[in-house]
Amino acid sequence: MFEARLTEGAILKKVLDSVKDLVTDANFEADPTEGFKLQAMDSSHVSLVSLKLHADGFAHYRCDRPLTMGMNLANMAKMLKCASNEDAITMKADDAGDVVAFMFESPGQEKISDFELKLMDIDSEHLGIPDTEYAVTIRMPSAEFKRICSDLATIGDTVAISVSKEGVKFSTTGDIGDANVTLRQNSEDDKEKMISIELGEPVNLTFALRYLNSFTKATPLSDQVVIRLSPQLPIVVQYVVVDVGYISYYLAPKIED
C-alpha cells in the first residue's frame, strides 16, 4: 500500500496548480525509496514537466512497492481545492486499487475530509533525460522571471535569451515593436533577491513564451528559480521546494525556419 502525509498540504495544492495547465492526464509514480514523482509531456510534445516530492519530505511516507496512479489532473485539482491552505493532506492507495484517497485535516483536527479520486489507465511515454553539464546556470527571483515572461508576452510570441559576461538579455519582437530586458548579476545578500549567472560559454536560444509563462505557475512554490541553458538544448526551468522536492520544466528551443 501507499500512504503519504504532507503536513503543509498547500504544497501539494501549489504543485497541482503548476502542472494542470500543461498536462491533462498523467501517471504519478509512488516509489518506496525515491518518493512521489511525475513526468509528463504536454500534448504537442514540446515541453515536459518532471516533479518529485522526496520520500523524506513527507511527515509520514509508506510505499510497499512501486505504484503507478493515473490521474486526470483537472479532477485531482478540483479535489485538492477543497483542502484549506492550512490543512495537512494524506494520500492513500491500495496496490491493486482503482482509487486514490485524499484526506484533509485542519490544524486543530476539528475537520476531517475524505475524498476519493478514480484512477485511470494512461499510456505514457517516459523520456530519459541525459545528465548534462549546462553551459549557463542562472538563479534569480522567481517573481522576476514571471514578470519578464508575462511582460514580453504582451509584445511578442517568442523570447530570445542570450547570456554573456554582460548578463542575461531577454528579447522579443512583435507587430507593435521590440522589447529587451537585461539582468545583471548582483551581490545581494538577501537570497530572495539574488541574481547569479554561472557562465561557461555564451548562449543564445529562442523559446515560445506561451510555455515559459505556463511554467511560471510554479512561482508560489519557491522564491528563486534556476534556469539552465546550453547551445541547441532544451531550457530547464526549476523550482526547488527546500527539503521537500522540486518541479522542473523542459522546453525545446525554436530554430530558424
Binding site: 510534445h45 523520456l127 541525459p130
Partner: peptide, 13 residues
C-alpha cells in the same frame, strides 16, 4: 517566428 522543435528529438525514449 522560427520552427518549434519537438522534445523527443533531444531525450531518449
Amino acid at each position: 517566428r522560427g520552427k518549434q522543435q519537438n522534445l523527443k528529438a533531444f531525450f531518449t525514449m
